[in-house]
Design a protein around this nucleic acid. Structure first.
Lengths: 214, 214
DNA sequence: CCGGATCCTCATTGATACTG
DNA sequence: CAGTATCAATGAGGATCCGG
């Protein structure tokens, strides 16, 4: 990216992360950990391979990621975030929190992946009853599976299926995510196609984090 | 901007704010308040007028700013942030905080303006002695003037000159900002050309805010 | 002068095909 | 699998022009 040429930390930050796809690549590396080229490509539907390749080189040159060749038997390179790259997590959190306001409208062609189902509760909710007993919530949206685990006052998430969930939320992505992030209530979520099975009393434990007032 | 086509709040947020110049326009409106076209252009050295015009229309269409025609005698339009636009402040703060790491190197051709001198201490420092007596620090960098006022446990800043500052910091931008944001110490700042006059004991009261650990 | 609109040129991005 | 090469389409940057 061409520099803005301004001695301002916002402009200089954007010089590095302002390019198209750059922050989404960082998102994937944050959510998935060290990844191979093809894994990144899968997590970034729509990216052209040449562009992904270019961005990875730029990110490496800027010190945000490191590229590690796997030991000889395997011919595959691993990309992972450096400390600088990892430090972008708060930036992504704030963008994601702000971006929630655009999640209510439906766009049938949007891609949807389990990682994006998983990070939302982990980043955008807290356990309102931190000393409460552990609980497990199964999420199912658009065929993608994720699990929320409330434990030790923290909201953990992981991909996949839980063995014995206390509550299961299944429905279109915006009904599940809208409910979890507090953008819509249970009635509306149900109208949008959500099915909630199990201990509905667990829902109030997920408290959406509020945006800081200005 | 072309949509990323992903049902993810980060991607959807970036659909709106990911275009070149967009976040810097928001920065100017946050720092300057309601502004006219020409004021924005002045605060955004390097932007082409057609691009600024295009972005303002896009921002208005996205609901981030409102455009208000001044009463008939004057033919000037005022742009200001809507609630949605204002809600981007935390995003800009995190980007700016992250971007501080790139401020240590010097690029002689970078533009520099007083607003950028002023927002850094206000956003990136806190008063380490919130119950201490009020104090006033004059900043001078590259001919740009700003004032820090420590009062009621808050770090206020404004542009211009203070009448009777307790401390004056004068030097190249990176020496002043590097010292204030904790990226360099007083010795190094002095080597970089900083002159500090007055109550140096006030410096420790400006505590750089730490980046959240991952 | 203010607030843009138009036009032109160059740089970036996107889609797809291809290679070690 | 992990990219590179190619080329078309889009976007940015810069200069100029125009109506109030």
């Amino acid at each position: 990216m061409r520099s803005y040429g301004q001695y301002c930390s916002i402009a200089r930050g954007l010089d590095v992360i302002g390019d198209r796809w750059t922050l989404l690549i960082v998102r994937e590396l944050l959510l998935q950990g060290p990844s191979r080229f093809t894994e990144l490509k899968r997590g970034l539907p729509g990216v052209a391979t040449n562009l992904l390749s270019t961005r990875l080189k730029e990110l490496e040159a800027a010190g945000l990621i490191t590229r590690e060749d796997a030991p000889p038997p395997i011919a595959t390179a691993l990309y992972q975030l450096s400390e600088s790259g990892h430090a972008l997590q708060p930036v992504l959190k704030e963008i994601g929190l702000w971006g929630l306001r655009f999640m209510v409208d439906e766009r049938p062609d949007d891609a949807f992946q389990a990682q994006w189902l998983a990070y939302a509760p982990a980043w955008f909710t807290t356990d309102a009853e931190p000393d409460g007993p552990p609980a497990v919530i199964q999420l199912v949206a658009d065929g993608e599976l994720a699990v929320i685990e409330l434990r030790n006052g923290r909201v953990h998430t992981r991909l996949g299926r839980a063995t014995d969930p206390d509550l299961t939320l299944e429905g279109p992505p915006r009904s599940v995510l809208g409910l979890l992030t507090g953008k819509i209530d249970l009635d509306l979520a149900t109208q949008l196609g959500l099915t909630a099975t199990g201990r509905l009393d667990l829902l109030p434990r997920l408290r959406p984090v509020a945006q800081q007032p200005a």
